[in-house]
Design a protein around this nucleic acid. Structure first.
Lengths: 154, 154
DNA sequence: GCAAATTGGACTGAAACAGTACCGTATGGT
DNA sequence: ACCATACGGTACTGTTTCAGTCCAATTTGC
């Protein structure tokens, strides 16, 4: 099925940690120790999250990062986008000779873009607050399931 | 956002081509020429699709491949699974020291698995038949959109 | 028997990715 | 003003993954 990079996954971990105390300012070192990753890696991810306005940074002594908004106002899709950027593994018509002559194949591409929009729309419904909930609260995510019985059969 | 490999994408292209005439037996060479890819690559993908029972193969002279079922009985999820297998880019608790000590982080992992199930459930609703439709017919895919107006705003 | 076509497995080089290193800039405290 | 702390930005490196290629064995129809 579709894949997510380790860094994006780490990104969700970091955001989840931050969501525990949204008002608290935490340094990259503190965060790295809390989530168990190397500081440079965490720092790299934090920068991306800041650039995407998912975190606020404070430079200088006693600096660090904090959440700029409530966890339930941040979607999982936004977190992933912040880390991954926007690349899609699409078949580029221009890179395959004769491809564009196949209208049906180009329709595939068109459909895949639509499908990715479905995926995105779905993940935009899952908030950081829900993500940060404990397993007993996981039932609250289920309102996003296309068909709950179908999802749980997997 | 989430990624799909080029090979998986090619897989959907191949299946779409096959869906145009489901009863027709076509050799790897024929398919390769039709979709504009190299035969070895197409052959490789065809094998995977056969292994996943998404295609039927006939060895020997006049051999080739054909669809074993109607295009509307094959989901996009199945095609992708056939090509990609089942890897997920999850953060492995065991690979990050101290990770499992963070219950909240492990909850993240649990949630991501749920989210991937949502994605999978959604893509299982998109059939090869729909994928093979032309852009003018693309409206038929929209019943899978979580919120049509939301999807089209992207 | 021969030609056509799949099957299976291994190999290779390039690209992508995760992780690292280093310097510049900003800010608070003394 | 100076110093320590901490982020911001960029580039580099080694590893892994992936797409593509190659080849021999097996199968089947004529």
């Amino acid at each position: 099925m579709l894949r997510m990079s380790k860094l994006a996954d780490y990104g969700t971990v970091i955001m989840t940690f931050m969501a525990q105390e949204p008002q608290q300012v935490r340094s990259a070192l503190e965060i790295a120790m809390a989530v168990g990753l190397e500081v440079p890696t965490v720092s790299k991810l934090l920068k991306r999250l800041v650039r995407a306005n998912l975190l606020l940074s404070q430079r200088g002594a006693r600096g660090g990062y904090m959440l700029p908004m409530a966890p339930d106002e941040i979607s999982v899709a936004a977190i992933i986008d912040a880390i991954e950027g926007y690349p899609m593994g699409l078949t580029e018509c221009s890179s395959i000779p004769g491809m564009c002559a196949r209208e049906s194949a180009c329709a595939v591409r068109g459909n895949w873009q639509r499908i990715s929009r479905i995926v995105r729309a779905t993940l935009e419904r899952v908030t950081l607050a829900e993500l940060a909930c404990r397993p007993p609260s996981a039932a609250s995510v289920d309102r996003n399931v296309v068909d709950a019985s179908e999802a749980f059969s997997m």
